[in-house]
Design a protein around this nucleic acid. Structure first.
Lengths: 243, 243
DNA sequence: CGAGACGTTGAGTCCGCTCAACGCCCGTGG
DNA sequence: CCACGGGCGTTGAGCGGACTCAACGTCTCG
């Protein structure tokens, strides 16, 4: 393997838990590290907490000091309303960064809970700030990350604003598909790490409605449902259901 | 008037269109400028476009190059779905920054349209980036701003997720009140720059429902409605309706 | 002062919610 | 091995809140 095509070389096994595929690796790894050094470098990253299903990564109202990059697994973030109900504001997957909404006042705005066995990198925000001081170009990366998060939220606002139940579920699956497809070789099969109730909570629907719409999409030969695994039979038609 | 209490001195006339009250002034003004120099400095800011009601500040899918800080007036941002309907994702007021969601791929994700006569400061993003390079502490300010925007979006997701029509309208008014109260001396009176239809679109309700809920809140002696001006008669009870 | 945009109110409909029953899967313990 | 139980998912019946459609009232601005 030559080093001539450094930026586009093929990585033999797609290990998405490695730093190579992490969208925030420029934030936690030393400046100027190249791809070949990554495997060495990532072994010295310090905090790599493992979480089981149901474990809290951080709590609402707790003091913010670190961001968390998801290496493997999946996470839900949710707020708790004053009458005690939880409202899910997002599902998060490997390569994504948690805790950005806590920067503004250094208090976590939501709870983050693992939906399955999950590994994250804890990145001290002080470290990030001092690294941005030394390497100003990191600011751009960081701003882009936050901007992307804003865009995702706005997309969700558009879904919740005026879409029907069927459209919401279709959008949910389609977006999941788009986010997953860098992660699975089997691109047209999604494994849902969350319950129907959690999907409904997120989409502003009851769990029964989620269930009904999934079977509806199945009867239309658009998907095949097997418990939590969803096979996308006709992605184009799924996409057309989103509008 | 002594200058001894520099950080809490009284500013005679609260001119919220001045840079003194702008949340992003550290981004567009030279480093280290103190409050007393502001009035001089802000006269040399270059781009200060004026917009009339209905004017576009930027268009969805157009190339991103600047952020826009609102100096006076108000703005709605909205996306257009594939079937041509608009979905409002936010209302924006003086001191707030528009265009943050376009940083990630340099294309505007939404339209921004003035709801009334509006003045903004156009701030070249290249300028911001190079200033962050020179003054690293600006990075923190910028990250805080984006984080705050994320938090606002998440709050909205919680509202749209499971609240009833009455709760949505109450939350809308209460949030508006909180954002307004730094801007108006008459703190318990809100002037709405948008139509019922735009409120409904934003809240995921029909315009008729918005109208009905407003009269409902009026009949409960919580607010008094006079066209677009809403007098908050009982803020505590309004707040309790939000949950 | 007239036209059009905006807002209110009423009547009827429908989508999604609630309540309820049942089935499936799986781990646990007798 | 089966029984049991709990979590999760599906399906049905009936209800209700928000939407749609429609008419009318009111404000704004040329």
């Amino acid at each position: 393997m030559t080093a001539s095509k450094a930026s586009s070389r093929v990585i033999p096994i797609r290990d998405f838990s490695s730093c190579s595929y992490c969208s925030v690796r420029r934030l936690c790894l030393p400046h100027g590290v190249n791809d070949d050094d990554l495997q060495t470098v990532e072994k010295i990253v310090e905090h790599r907490p493992h979480y089981d299903k149901g474990d809290h990564i951080f709590h609402q109202s707790s003091k913010f000091s670190s961001l968390f990059a998801i290496k493997s697994g999946s996470v839900k973030t949710f707020g708790v309303t004053r009458d005690g109900k939880e409202q899910i504001t997002g599902f998060h997957f490997p390569g994504e960064l948690l805790g950005l909404d806590a920067i503004c006042n250094e208090v976590h705005n939501c709870n983050a809970v693992a939906l399955e066995q999950t590994v994250v990198c804890e990145i001290s925000y002080d470290n990030i700030e001092s690294m941005v001081g030394e390497i100003p170009s990191l600011h751009s990366d960081f701003a882009r990350l936050m901007s992307k998060e804003l865009r995702r939220d706005d997309e969700m606002l558009m879904i919740l604003g005026n879409m029907s139940a069927e459209q919401r579920v279709s959008c949910f699956l389609y977006n999941l598909h788009r986010r997953m497809k860098r992660q699975d070789d089997v691109q047209d099969e999604i494994h849902l790490p969350m319950t129907r109730e959690e999907i409904g909570n997120y989409l502003g629907l009851s769990l029964e409605t989620v269930s009904r719409r999934l079977t509806g999409l199945q009867q239309a030969d658009i998907i095949t449902v097997h418990n939590r695994s969803i096979k996308l039979q006709d992605i184009e038609r799924l996409r057309s259901h989103c509008m």
